[in-house]
Design a protein around this nucleic acid. Sequence first.
DNA 1: TTTAAATCCTACTAATCTGCTAGGGTTTAA
DNA 2: TTAAACCCTAGCAGATTAGTAGGATTTAAA
Lengths: 139, 139
Amino acid sequence: MLSKKTKYGIKALVYIAKREREDPIQTSEIAKNENISLKFLESILLSLRKSGILASKKGKGGGYYLLKEPQEIKMTSVIRVLEGPIAMVPCVSLNYYEKCEDCPYESTCPVHALMIQVRDSTLKVFSENTLADMVSVKK
Amino acid sequence: MLSKKTKYGIKALVYIAKREREDPIQTSEIAKNENISLKFLESILLSLRKSGILASKKGKGGGYYLLKEPQEIKMTSVIRVLEGPIAMVPCVSLNYYEKCEDCPYESTCPVHALMIQVRDSTLKVFSENTLADMVSVKK
DNA sequence: TTTAAATCCTACTAATCTGCTAGGGTTTAA
DNA sequence: TTAAACCCTAGCAGATTAGTAGGATTTAAA
């Protein structure tokens, strides 16, 4: 399951990316328009800032803004910050690899083999989509 | 994250499928060989039986056996029984659809659009793999 | 210089899920 | 009759999630 943190985080990023103006956007504005709890959203935007996707301006008139152009922000990095590893098991994770204790040999493990395929296909989707693609979602 | 239930369930199914003999295989044998807690495995095999993937024989000499040939058992059905919905959000689930309360329009939701792509690519992997493919994992 | 707006930070909590364990009941072959 | 096996319900400790509470700090503007 996708966490609400990730869901809200993506919506907030899209909200910010949609604005073409350069001045920062307040957490409260996003929270109101996207139906997100203010305090929860605060912590989400904070972690996006700490990971280098967003930057912030403190004090009155402050808020958050993107550090890069939307088309330069891949969804892989967004997902990794918000949701954590993309792989469904640590033993196939590229960035957070861990061996399974119960598995003597990875090379003959059926779960390993299957999850490598899932990881690759999911990774493909996330790296083909940038924040700009998310902004342009319209039916 | 993939649950241990799913991981153990797949390993157990592969263990059963690897045997070509027709007589049932005991939970205890699988638990020992795959390093799985016996009681936990019991409950997993039980749910696989209830969903029609496995059948069982009670009493002495009893155990579990496959109801269909391994190449006829798609991983989609295995995953759905063990892990639940394949989609990461209910609003893109084919079998367990639910509307998001916080989303006024799905058609313009960026999360929805992204998760449809993830769902489709993951579904493709799971439906291209059968239990027979899992059995033949060798390096 | 004060005030209000905004981010930043820490700590707590209720609810849910996961990965089991406990303790037996029931069925069947030998 | 006995032992082996599946079947079933209940409970439980630990982790995670989705927040809430309460304030500290920074900054623009009156």
